[in-house]
Amino acid sequence: MEKQLAMPRLRPEMTSGVLCAWLKEEGDTVEAGEPLYEVETDKVVNQIEATASGVLKKQLWEEGDQVAPGDPVAILETE
C-alpha cells in the first residue's frame, strides 16, 4: 500500500520551507521515527521524522526546493 508523507507546518506562519537534504534514498527502508529529510527554517535545520514505516518509493522534491506545509513530500510503500 502506498502512503504519502506531507510537509509539516513547522511554525504557525510558515508558508514554505526549503527541503535542504534527503536523508534516505529511493529504495531505502525507513522506520517510523527515523529522520527522512531536512527542512531549513530561519533558526535551525529540522530533521523531519517519518510518520510511517516502509520503503521510500518516491522523493517528490529535489534538494533546494521550496515546499509548502501540507504538500506531499514522499511516497512510502508500506505493508
Binding site: 527542512v39 523531519i48 510518520t51
Partner: peptide, 18 residues
C-alpha cells in the same frame, strides 16, 4: 540563507507535536 552549522540540527516528530 547561510547554511546552518552541523550542530544546529533538531529532530521533529509531527505526531508528538500535534
Amino acid at each position: 540563507m547561510e547554511r546552518k552549522p552541523e550542530w544546529l540540527r533538531v529532530r521533529y516528530n509531527q505526531e508528538a507535536v500535534a
